[in-house]
Simulated assay, not measured.
Amino acid sequence: MSHSRAAEDEVDRLIAAWQQERPDLDVTPLEVLSRVSRLSRHLDRARRAAFAEHDLESWEFDVLTALRRAGRPYELSPGALLRATLVTSGTMTNRIDRMVASGLVTRHPDPEDRRGVLVRLTAQGVERVDAAFAGLLRRERELLAGLGEREQRALAALLHTLLVPFDASDGGSH
C-alpha cells in the first residue's frame, strides 16, 4: 500500500482481503474511493447531528441555506429552490408547506409574475439556519483536525479535480 500510516483502517483490511483473494486485480482505486465513500457516510452522520442540534432536518437545511445564500431579502421562487435542491415539484411544495407551518419561511406573491410566488426566510428561519451553519462548520473543522491547513488545501484541490467532470456532465446541478 502506498501510505505509511501506523494505524490500519477498514479500507486497509478490505484491500488486503481482495489482494489475498484476487491477486490478479489492481485494487488501487479502492485506496482512494472506498475511503471517500466511508468518509461521506461519516460526514453525513456529522451533518445530521449538527442539524438536529438546531431542530432541523437535512432537507430543511438545504432549503434554508439556498434561501440564505440568495441574499436579502432571502427569497427565491419555488422553481429556483427546485434547481438548488434537486427534488420534484411535489416534494418541494410539501417541504415549503411544512416550513411555512413551522414558521421558518413565508410565501409572498411574486411582484414580477402575477401567477408566481416567492418563498422568503422569516427572522426565525435566518436565526436557525445561521446557527445550524455555524454548528456544521464547527463539526466539519473537527473532522478535518487531523490535517494541517496545507494538507486541507491540497485535498480540496485534488477532490475538485475529481469532481469537476461529474458536475460538468450533469450540468453542474449539484
Rank of each mutant, 00 (worst) to 15 (best):
I96Q: 01
L76A: 10
Q152P: 02
A101P: 00
V32C: 04
P165H: 07
V119I: 10
S173C: 10
R107E: 13
S102L: 09
P29E: 02
D55Q: 15
L137K: 08
L64S: 01
F166P: 03
D9M: 03
M92N: 01
G146V: 10
A46D: 09
A154W: 10
L56I: 04
L81P: 01
P23T: 09
F61M: 09
T28A: 15
Q20N: 13
V117I: 13
R38N: 08
H108F: 11
E53G: 12
F61P: 03
D110I: 04
H54L: 10
G116R: 12
R68W: 13
Q20W: 14
R5M: 05
D97Y: 03
T88V: 06
A84V: 00
E53I: 09
D113R: 11
N94W: 04
T161E: 13
L43Q: 07
E142K: 05
A168V: 13
R47V: 03
A16G: 09
A50Y: 04
A134N: 06
A156F: 08
M99S: 02
A17W: 05
S40L: 09
D24I: 04
V100D: 00
E75N: 07
E75G: 03
R115K: 09
T161Q: 14
P78E: 02
T91W: 09
R83L: 12
A101W: 01
G90M: 01
R35M: 05
A123S: 14
A145N: 07
R45P: 03
G146C: 10
D62L: 02
G90H: 00
V100L: 01
L147P: 04
Q124R: 12
E31F: 09
D26K: 08
E31W: 08
R45G: 02
E127C: 06
A46E: 06
L39Q: 11
F51A: 03
M99E: 03
L64N: 03
W18D: 01
M92C: 02
H54P: 04
R83V: 14
T106L: 12
D130Q: 15
G71I: 09
L82V: 15
R35G: 02
R83K: 15
G146N: 09
T65R: 15
R139F: 03
T28N: 07
L118H: 07
A134F: 04
T88C: 07
R128W: 05
T88L: 06
T122K: 01
H42M: 08
R48G: 00
A145F: 00
D130R: 12
L104K: 00
E142R: 11
L82R: 15
A84Q: 04
L121E: 04
V105Q: 03
L67I: 12
V32W: 11
V129G: 02
R13Q: 10
D12A: 08
A80W: 00
E140F: 15
R114Q: 07
W59I: 05
L143A: 12
G90T: 12
L147W: 12
L82M: 15
G71T: 02
A168E: 14
G125L: 00
T91C: 10
A101N: 07
R139E: 15
S102N: 15
L155N: 04
V126M: 01
P109F: 00
F133R: 10
R107S: 08
R38L: 14
F51V: 04
T65G: 06
P111G: 07
E142F: 09
E140M: 15
T122N: 02
G103S: 06
R22W: 03
T28E: 11
F133S: 11
A101S: 10
M1W: 13
E8I: 11
G116M: 09
G90K: 07
